[in-house]
Design a protein around this nucleic acid. Structure first.
Ligand SMILES: [Mn+2]
Ligand SMILES: [Mn+2]
Ligand SMILES: [Mn+2]
Ligand SMILES: [Mn+2]
Lengths: 220, 220
DNA sequence: TATGTTTTTTTGGGTAGTCAAAATTTCTAT
DNA sequence: ATAGAAATTTTGACTACCCAAAAAAACATA
């Protein structure tokens, strides 16, 4: 059985592969994301290759094998179900559950996670709008546009926030910019690189392009 | 911060100290309980001594320091609250929660455990009747007699079962011999070394002395 | 195309935890 | 009192993970 370290590396590679359109993920990027030294990653890539979880081309980067991807999806499933459980059943705040889940995802048994899934009514997304992989490891990502790419002055509903920083999530909560809520993008300014967004029932907010790109919306 | 391995060693020493009336705990006993080689324990005892968690007299045994005892009590608190949460809130069986808790006790945060405590209404005992240490680490053990030491033909109520084996717990459940239920000890035979117990509403059962000693009762 | 910069890998070393087997100490029983 | 048994500690070795710094490869640019 994989260690929790291995599980975290797999999650990381999985995430980078996505944000990369299937390109190889560089060891440098992994080192940066995991907060470890570059050499540490090279060593780990060898053991992941040994275990058949990744394909590794020295100096080029790595890609998950099917087994690696399935395993990563299972960890993601545990992470996201735990997050939703903590919010929905235990009344915790969406800004604090990520860190808890980062640990618990390695500690909950299959039986326990399926019981959570049942209690939650087989949910499709977690508190941040991230899709929850199925018990078989199938994961469907939507391709919703962000506040940076969506139409102006249209009634939108927030579907997902792809930033786990506590302070950021708390700010969005204060402005009522959480998944399930509605908002309108009023202006988008290329000079200041900011987006002005008016949440339904919340204070208007000006976001930098990068921050705006982490809030995804669906047309209604 | 202690590793989960260290936490398990402390729990083990704590338990053995109790069942020992405060005598020193031998490294051999610890090795046996932890399922590791004797030399492994000797090495660990040195690092626990370094950390100020135990007093270690080579060839004699070890005893917890106050810090070690407090830490052990906190792990015990997490373990037992998690067990009760799994039974009470998540509807799991009392026979299966021990193994889950053995892992989760090292993964739940203080914030999460206090939330559980709140949801459960600040309970005093876990599903097996084991007392739950307070948030400050105070632990009060009752000195209830077991089915081996209690009076015959008296109406008793089960308070605690100090055996975590799944199969044993399932058997007791079938016979309605769980904490909170009532029972009468009808006979105690020194030749066959068995105790005949009649649970209230359950099938009568004959237990060996050792098994009987693990079921504690309070007079009513 | 040669040089300098950036990225990656290699090397040497460290901590935590483990085991098997040898050495040592303590206990037991004659 | 002493031999033998039992318990304990020591030794040498292993896996998993990590880092710093040197070496090597790849990239960029003049
Ligand atoms: Mn994690
Ligand atoms: Mn999430
Ligand atoms: Mn444990
Ligand atoms: Mn218990």
């Amino acid at each position: 059985m994989p260690t929790s370290t291995v599980e975290d590396y797999l999650k990381c590679i999985h995430r980078e592969e996505r944000s990369n359109e299937g390109q190889l993920v560089s060891t440098g990027k992994i080192a940066q994301e995991m907060g470890v030294a570059p050499g540490t990653v090279t060593a780990m890539m060898k053991t992941l290759t040994e275990s058949g979880l990744i394909r590794y081309e020295p100096y080029m980067g790595v890609r998950l094998t099917d087994r690696g991807r399935t395993l990563a999806a299972h960890v993601l499933r545990r992470h996201r179900l735990v997050e939703l459980f903590l919010v929905q059943i235990m009344g915790m705040d969406w800004s604090e559950v990520h860190d808890e889940a980062e640990v618990l995802e390695h500690a909950v048994s299959d039986r326990l996670i399926e019981r959570m899934d049942e209690m939650l009514g087989h949910p499709k997304v977690d508190p941040h709008g991230d899709p929850i992989p199925s018990a078989t490891g199938a994961l469907e990502e939507s391709d919703d546009p962000s506040l940076l790419a969506c139409a102006l002055n249209r009634d939108l509903h927030i579907t997902r926030v792809t930033d786990q920083r506590k302070e950021f999530l708390r700010l969005l909560e204060q402005h009522k910019l959480m998944p399930g809520r509605r908002a309108v993008v009023e202006t988008r300014d290329d000079l200041t690189e900011t987006v002005q967004v008016r949440p339904d029932g919340g204070e208007p907010l000006r976001l930098g392009f990068h921050a705006a790109s982490r809030i995804l919306v669906g047309r209604e």
